[in-house]
Simulated scan of single mutants.
Amino acid sequence: MRSAADLRLPLVAVSLVSRAGYFRQQIDPSAGQVERPATWEPRRWTQSLDAKIAVRLEGRVVWIGAWLYALEGQLGGRAPVSSRITDLDENAAADREITHHLYGGDERYRLAQEAALGIGGVS
């Protein structure tokens, strides 16, 4: 996206607000990897958008909100990044966690994440 901003390409990135999706890696004394939580709070870096959409997943309605980050390139261009979130009061506890973990869960969890992203496409 930085390159798109630098080249002033008309692109919009769509991602998930993965508050608990990342971790910090450390090496322990026996040279093994230790994973430490690295939570992320979107309101520190992004702007909440007022609009919400509803999708039907397995017969229930799941509300999806968005945060906007205006990525600035090294050459002064900007590229918007829209991060989707299901951690909303309108959703059931399980649905609030759909966007919590990047690359987490089983096939059902990943399909729910793809629905939150909009399934995907280029126009």
Results as ranks from 00 to 15, higher is better:
38 A>F: 06
69 Y>M: 07
98 I>A: 05
109 Y>I: 08
100 H>T: 11
75 L>G: 11
40 W>D: 09
83 S>A: 14
35 E>N: 12
94 A>Y: 00
119 I>Y: 00
23 F>M: 09
38 A>C: 06
114 E>L: 15
64 I>V: 14
119 I>F: 00
110 R>E: 14
42 P>H: 04
3 S>L: 10
23 F>K: 09
80 P>T: 01
114 E>V: 06
109 Y>D: 15
89 D>H: 07
8 R>P: 02
61 V>L: 08
105 G>Q: 07
20 A>S: 12
42 P>S: 06
37 P>A: 13
102 L>T: 04
35 E>H: 11
93 A>W: 08
42 P>E: 06
30 S>K: 11
78 R>Y: 08
26 Q>R: 14
67 W>R: 01
92 A>S: 10
106 D>S: 13
112 A>F: 06
58 E>R: 15
77 G>H: 05
123 S>Q: 06
81 V>M: 02
64 I>P: 02
14 V>G: 00
118 G>F: 00
66 A>D: 07
104 G>T: 09
21 G>W: 03
80 P>H: 01
52 K>T: 11
47 Q>G: 04
121 G>C: 05
50 D>G: 15
56 R>H: 05
103 Y>S: 07
66 A>I: 01
76 G>D: 08
66 A>P: 04
49 L>S: 03
82 S>L: 12
17 V>P: 02
31 A>S: 15
121 G>K: 03
76 G>C: 08
22 Y>V: 04
82 S>W: 12
64 I>F: 01
98 I>E: 04
73 G>P: 10
120 G>R: 00
17 V>Y: 00
18 S>G: 14
98 I>R: 03
35 E>Y: 11
11 L>F: 06
22 Y>C: 09
108 R>M: 12
60 R>G: 05
97 E>L: 14
35 E>R: 13
39 T>P: 15
100 H>F: 13
28 D>R: 05
106 D>L: 10
110 R>F: 11
50 D>L: 09
116 A>H: 07
107 E>L: 13
115 A>Q: 13
111 L>Y: 10
7 L>E: 14
